[in-house]
Design a protein around this nucleic acid. Structure first.
Length: 473
DNA sequence: CTATGGCACGGATT
DNA sequence: AATCCGTGCCATAG
């Protein structure tokens, strides 16, 4: 197999190695990029050489002389999995990495950085000179979502003004165009938007309370729970959730940038993929190409020059250099191991979830991390770490968290929704369970009931009467 | 008597 | 080792 070409040392020699491997494994590319960059800056023994390129397709590939997708056409639905060098959209500010100008992400960053200026222009006329400083402070502390990352009280203390004054400035910012920017929490952003909408488009009753107390239930789509919490009917709860979902946005910056420029949904998501999946051909039986994006833009290695220089090093520097060399070796080794684990994981995952990758959520197979761990003969916590926080871009362009591939119930829930949507007369939980079993979903009757309430669907009996009576939760 | 929702246990996840 | 989620058992509403 082509994977064997880069087979790393599999057994951790030291506890340091073990610990670092685990840490690296659970790191997202974004985090890892930073770590590598600081390591490169601090350790002269490390260097990045430019990636090898495939002579035929010119694709850059880490650790391969030939692009794996040109090298061989795997048989029997086997995917092509390889580690590819970091793309531009992973670059951090101040990075020295060059080339590889890729289609996708860089404009995203450029525009988001513009947001503070954009807001500043709108509110500038309203500001007293003294408030300008405060506004600048707040606006420069916005995160990608348009929410504040600083405490208002701290800002007030920093500028030696009262909290009220800071709040006044904040309110001005919140009223500005991406409605709700500069809020300290998603809830606050929602409330600001709600206030502004109130006259134009009156919200359902208790919307405010739902935002204040029910966010957690709301985000889980636990409409039944929400209804109980607010003392309203489930039907009202659903309508309320729909209102919030359609008209309001807890992350003002995302809504704004998403709306103004009609770009694919991929880039309005805050997720940047760690792994890209594409198809080799348009055929149904195409091999899938899985690129695991490496956190560096070439091959990371221990500099041979440095190694040579070590033997001629002046005595007083020798100890420090030797330590550098050791750290460098360790880091490289650990990263290789990380790559290897990810490659093996994806290799298997893509085979199992092939239908999902090609055709979407409905084809997601139930899967547990433990199951994969057994097949790959690694500890389950290894899988857990490898999956945590990672995002994958599917051939469709959609970016999803890798964790979703392991959802045990999502597909069952969609099937359940479909059944209920299509049924003429209300079915009992037991009947639904049997229908689900016929579709290959083995779930207990009790679980059907749980999913039902999660989705905010009334019981069979209630559904029968819901038409005339508006029952009370 | 049947369909549901509450509570608690055990395996999965982190 | 702590926490979450699916299930089984049981009381209760219809």
């Amino acid at each position: 197999m082509l994977l064997q070409t880069q087979k790393p040392i599999l057994r951790p020699q030291t506890t340091a190695h073990l610990a670092q491997t685990m840490t690296l494994l659970e790191m997202t590319n974004a985090e890892l990029c930073q770590k590598i960059e600081s390591a490169l800056a601090a350790n002269p023994a490390l260097e990045v050489v430019s990636p090898a390129r495939c002579p035929s397709c010119h694709r850059a590939v880490v650790n391969h002389g030939v692009c794996p997708s040109c090298q061989a056409r795997p048989a029997g639905g086997q995917p092509i999995v390889f580690v590819s060098p970091r793309r531009d959209f992973w670059r951090h500010e101040g990075s020295t990495c060059t080339d590889e100008g890729e289609e996708q992400g860089e404009e995203w960053n450029a525009e988001v950085e513009d947001l503070p200026t954009f807001v500043a222009q709108q509110i500038a006329p309203e500001l007293a000179p003294r408030e300008r400083m405060i506004a600048a402070h707040l606006l420069s502390s916005l995160d990608d979502d348009g929410l504040l990352t600083v405490n208002l009280l701290e800002v007030a203390r920093y500028h030696h003004v009262s909290l009220q004054e800071v709040q006044r400035v904040q309110r001005l910012i919140q009223q500005a165009d991406p409605l709700g920017v500069g809020s300290t929490s998603p809830q606050e952003a929602l409330l600001v938007q709600l206030e502004a909408l109130r006259e134009v488009d009156p919200p359902p009753p208790k919307t405010e309370q739902a935002i204040l107390w029910g966010m957690e239930a709301l985000s889980r789509r636990a409409y039944g729970e929400l209804a109980r919490l607010l003392g309203i009917s489930v039907e009202e709860a659903r309508r309320l959730a729909q209102y919030i979902g359609e008209k309001l946005n807890p992350f003002p910056a995302r809504a704004y940038w998403g709306d103004v420029r009609h770009r694919p949904a991929t880039f309005t998501l805050p997720l940047r993929p760690d792994i890209l999946i594409s198809r080799l051909t348009e055929e149904e039986d195409t091999p899938l190409i899985v690129e695991i994006i490496s956190p560096y833009a070439g091959t990371l290695r221990v500099s041979p020059t440095f190694r040579r220089a070590l033997s001629e090093a002046p005595a007083e520097k020798r100890e420090g250099w030797r330590q550098n060399l050791e750290e460098a070796l360790l880091l490289v080794k650990c990263l290789q191991q990380r790559d290897h684990t990810l490659v093996r994981l994806m290799q298997r995952l893509v085979v199992i979830q092939r239908e999902y990758v090609l055709h979407g959520e409905a084809y997601l197979k139930p899967l547990t991390r433990a199951q994969i761990a057994e097949e790959l003969e690694v500890h389950e916590s290894t899988i857990s770490r490898a999956v945590a926080g990672k995002a994958v871009q599917l051939p469709s362009g959609k970016v999803v968290p890798l964790a979703r591939w392991f959802d045990r119930s999502l597909n069952v829930r969609t099937a359940l929704l479909k059944i209920i949507a299509e049924e003429q007369q209300p079915l009992s939980d037991a009947q639904i369970a049997r229908l689900l079993a016929r579709q290959g979903f083995q779930v207990a009757r009790r679980t059907v009931a749980k999913y039902r309430s999660m989705e905010g669907i009334l019981s069979a009996r209630m559904r029968r009467h819901a038409v005339k009576t508006s029952a009370h939760g």
